[in-house]
Design a protein around this nucleic acid. Sequence first.
DNA 1: ACCTGAACACCGTTCAAGT
DNA 2: ACCTGAACACCGTTCAAGT
Lengths: 216, 216
Amino acid sequence: MGRPAKFTREQLQQAALALVDADGLSGLTMRALASRLETGAMTLYNYVSQREELEMLVVEAVLGKVRWETDDRLPWHDALEDIAIALWRVIRDHPHVIPLILTRRSRSPAVFEVTEALLRTLAHSGRSGARLLVGFRAVSALIMGAAQAELAGPLTLQADESPDETIARFQALPPDRFPHLIEIATAATASDAETEFRASLSLLIDGLRADAAPLA
Amino acid sequence: MGRPAKFTREQLQQAALALVDADGLSGLTMRALASRLETGAMTLYNYVSQREELEMLVVEAVLGKVRWETDDRLPWHDALEDIAIALWRVIRDHPHVIPLILTRRSRSPAVFEVTEALLRTLAHSGRSGARLLVGFRAVSALIMGAAQAELAGPLTLQADESPDETIARFQALPPDRFPHLIEIATAATASDAETEFRASLSLLIDGLRADAAPLA
DNA sequence: ACCTGAACACCGTTCAAGT
DNA sequence: ACCTGAACACCGTTCAAGT
């Protein structure tokens, strides 16, 4: 038998998330994580086979934080809204991780469990099979797409820019060619991301309700 | 006056997109692009200031391919559907670029124009201001989220995996804990991405129609 | 079994020198 | 103005040797 392990995978996971939250995604290097754990870079390869595996761990650490109610007395659409907003909030709490959440596949039990909870709730609308699949596609696309907009949408303010500068940038566009773009850029300054997400989600849920089986 | 430029920004843009389409995202390095253009790596810095600018060019090259009808006799919801599907198809035609589309901001005139077209169509539903903003948020999130699912969703098949293996992987899950996950994984094999996207989009559009002003 | 330093094969980018 | 090689400061990862 060998010597006892110096770390656990969970320790790497937590340290990696802390590193990304603090220093951004570019701060997550094998060497930086190793030095945070006060060891050599090569030691990490006893726990993960590649840097990409580290990135999966970070994604799973974030998505694993989602908590939701499981109150079956709630109407399905209210329960669905709760899970979707819980997911969105957790993602938004870790803005530096968003690129990884969007691009890395995650397959941890925790992620499967939120997914199943969301599906279960959606199934209470009377959906199954292909219709359940489509409902799931729509809801999860809306959540992920909202996270994407947070990161790199047209209305997102740049790193080097104040909100006033963002709106000024849009108002500098030719108003005859981009009237609606200017209009929503203005509207965006009087709004906030969660309000907008909730309202978008409501639109989709209205569509889901209209198409639900009679039992809903 | 100096010597004439050896390339144009457009040439870099096209070469970069071709490189990514052919070799994947990891194939896009300053050195690889330079060698494709038969020049030294440093020459590229006469056209872009950073590698990231190259990535923006690639995103804009893809999104600039979107073409849409501008037939004002179409009902707004049909026109909206056309633009959304055109966008989705263009993104899907360049799967290797999806991570960049999700994570890089694009501000080219071409991207502004699709956005304005989408907004204009949505405005025909009677929306303006904050309601127009929310409608836009919802539609673009759905498109971007669908692209994300294509890249790294739970049902996406891995690089090293056949469709049969994907479904087998889900069917190996404990059926008492993940019944709905298993159900949609099965449904997904009998479906295809465009059908699912169109159906998700219809759900959202139904929600938008229900909430539209009377003039729609 | 797990740990780890040295070394290798890459990167993006700065610098300085060219025309 | 634009071009470009050399060099620098990073990376992730292989290898080989340790306990």
